[in-house]
Amino acid sequence: MGQNILTTSLGKLIGWGRGNSVWPAQFGLACCAIEMIATATAGVDIARFGSEAFRASPRQSDLMIVSGRVSQKMAPILRTIYDQMPEPKWVISMGACASTGGVFNNYALLQGVDKIVPVDVYIPGCPPRPEDLLNALMILQERIKAQGITPRQ
């Protein structure tokens, strides 16, 4: 689809809509999942950014927050869940373990979730503070808003 006045304006509108209603998949793995829950509670309140609707089904979600270490046994399941999510979809790799394997450099863990799914935003920390997750979400929102009608092309 070519770029013209109509599609760029529509793209802005769609990007604004998508960016402010990112629904994460409820997909907790390890320690970071607890901080992810803390992000959803009253103190930090992810609802301010339109992302409080953690969906239990990947079919209803736009964002996968990989919150914690991914073991070799879990990796195929994580990929299945990612494949089940409808386009457009984004991934936040939360914490050192999900991003690089963290302190565990061994046989059992996937050394970085970006080996099996494309990652949009990485968060350092073990586990990151809830504010870090909010910051990552805001970076992602900016990116979604800039992507227009057809992300990932």
Partner: peptide, 23 residues
Amino acid sequence: ILMPDDWVGHPLRRDYPVGGEVV
């Protein structure tokens, strides 16, 4: 019980490498 069913080797044996990636 902990490793996938098709895993080869027994990780906690001393001759099994720690694994992971080279830093």
